[in-house]
């Protein structure tokens, strides 16, 4: 599976620890998820709900024209999930850390089954992981829409 460098680093990080420690790592990503920017607060209509998650999760995708150093377009991700849903927040945190700032082509090239590479199935259950795959699918669809 060919993964963009930041996402591949996260996969390596998860692979290096035991299933139980993966849960702790997921909690770190949950805590590190950036807060929703002011401009999205209170405007749920501007966000897309991910119905496949156990708890309410909303996301927004932006593609800015001229991104960082390289000057090409870059994808930016924004998430809104309650504190009492740390697993869902953790999934969002991983996707944010692994994909935010990448060029659209790299986000779109991420395989749909990439969340499975984190080895969380045992710690979290495959059923719960579906929520993360659904988030990724919706992010990719929005990137496609923004870039068409």
């Amino acid at each position: 599976m060919s993964l963009p460098a930041p996402f591949a680093e996260i996969v390596e990080e998860f692979a290096a620890v035991t299933p139980r420690q993966r849960l702790e790592l997921l909690l770190d990503y949950s805590s590190d998820l950036p807060a929703l920017p002011e401009r999205y607060v209170g405007s749920r209509d501007a966000l897309e709900q991910v119905h496949e998650c156990q708890s309410p999760l909303f996301l927004a995708v932006e593609v800015d024209g001229d991104g960082a150093a390289g000057g090409g377009p870059a994808v930016h991700l924004f998430f809104d999930a309650p504190a009492e849903a740390p697993t869902t927040r953790g999934f969002a945190g991983i996707l944010h850390a692994g994909l935010d700032g990448l060029p659209p082509a790299e986000v779109l090239a991420l395989p749909d089954e990439a969340p499975l590479a984190l080895g969380l199935g045992e710690a979290v259950s495959p059923l719960r992981l579906r929520g993360m795959q659904a988030m990724l699918a919706r992010i990719k669809r929005q990137v496609r829409e923004r870039c068409s």
Partner: peptide
């Protein structure tokens, strides 16, 4: 819990 990480918080 429903959320597998809630206990850890």
């Amino acid at each position: 819990d429903e959320d597998v990480l809630l206990y850890e918080t």
